[in-house]
Design a protein around this nucleic acid. Sequence first.
DNA 1: TGTGGACCCTCCCCCAGGGGGAGGGTCCAG
DNA 2: CTGGACCCTCCCCCTGGGGGAGGGTCCACA
Lengths: 264, 264
Amino acid sequence: MLTIGEFSRLTHLSVRTLRRYHEGELLEPAVVDGATGYRYYSVEQIPTAQVINRLRELDVPLSDVQRILRTPDPGVRSTLVAGHLRRLEAELSRTRAAVTSLRRLLQPDPAPIEVELRAEPAREVAAVEAVIGHADVEAWFAGAMAELQAAVGAGRTGPPGGNYDNSLFEEGRGRVLVYLPTSTPPRTGRVHAVTLPAAELAVTTHVGEHEGVDVTYGELGAWVVENAMSVAGPVREVYLVGPRDVSDPAAWRTEIGWPVFRVT
Amino acid sequence: MLTIGEFSRLTHLSVRTLRRYHEGELLEPAVVDGATGYRYYSVEQIPTAQVINRLRELDVPLSDVQRILRTPDPGVRSTLVAGHLRRLEAELSRTRAAVTSLRRLLQPDPAPIEVELRAEPAREVAAVEAVIGHADVEAWFAGAMAELQAAVGAGRTGPPGGNYDNSLFEEGRGRVLVYLPTSTPPRTGRVHAVTLPAAELAVTTHVGEHEGVDVTYGELGAWVVENAMSVAGPVREVYLVGPRDVSDPAAWRTEIGWPVFRVT
DNA sequence: TGTGGACCCTCCCCCAGGGGGAGGGTCCAG
DNA sequence: CTGGACCCTCCCCCTGGGGGAGGGTCCACA
């Protein structure tokens, strides 16, 4: 039996942290003296403490650490760990995108964006929609688009698009709709016909990776304000050239349309 | 002038976050109505908001974001940003190390470590010492070792070593001492002669990268406890084979000695 | 058999960087 | 002029810890 201080020295976890892990039922001392409350640990608990330490270094939330530790089957366990490793990779690519985008922001490009005011008529498309959280958009988009492609196939009459509720950005959760234009929208699985309403759009084109698109949003927003207009309704993106067409991100083109109305 | 809601839609920052940035003097509205407290932003503030957003995505603390924003000179500014990018890289390598170490932990190696009990006599060495935080050890070590190498030169009579106070791991701050054995310790700069006290050591050898050394610590600790001993004093590491000798981490060998005394 | 110091306990407050919600004032179009 | 959207402040919540107060416990040495 080891006192908490001894165990701390052996695992390089602070006494405070060990007490917290006890409280959170992550690493319970082998023995707790009922009279004094003293915690006593056993040597066998050292590897467990080190696994916790490693997972915490990977910023795995304590609740997930707990779940991993309670999973007896090593196969399932490594699946859980692999999930977090994927999360780390996603975070890494997000970081890379932020870095490049930051560079773009800090070396200000004086080239002003071109904005076109366009009256878009209503039209019917094949769509998949859902209310989801901001963090899940990317994964959801991939699945929805795959389902759409399978359902529409060669009947596609134009580039795919997506509409995004403003609440998605303001509150982190909102309605998202992805669509493929087609003359006869099918109805299979999540795919169904949707009529995109007519709208007055302020339209510009974002060139390059989709990360950093919010800079273009900002420029578009500035244009809208300067032209005495106000935004109304979900933003519309049309993927003119995307990863499905060209692998080089520099060639991608995303049309961004913001429904506006004149303020006078 | 834009209301906070409009500005939120244009920057994809939540209203709450914008208010917080105002409170923290990071992004102050262009106009604040004295009577109502309403915040009004200008279009020119959109790029600033996006820079903040980018930096936050890189986990730059708000205080540092503030410092960056208040730096007018773009050269100095990009230096500050570059510092954070270096921090990101360091974090990335730390993450990689944790991943490999985690794999090692989850695929338990049944090979037990070999521990030797050794009486180490006192000896005089050339050393550099300091009380520092756990996070700074790596950087400090590099500098101290460079100074030692310069001072001792060819007079080296054995592999370098380092002693680490337990408080470094328990409280995140403690005394660290790195040394080079030499017959005539010089006295220049931070380098001075130190007598390492005699001690009874439980010694084992850690093979491979220094990350993951705490697993070896754990095994050594378990051995110490199982052999009815207790640890006393700072841990001693001796870098038998290190990055200065061989570039392949798999060949590195670190001797770890924990001062012990018999309990019974 | 003390006793002093190291060790341990609980409890409360602090940090960043937000989110949720209550309670109430303001703006503006119909 | 009124209703609903919008805005305000204030307080508590989250995670994963750290600092410190106030007090009990263990144990080696005298």
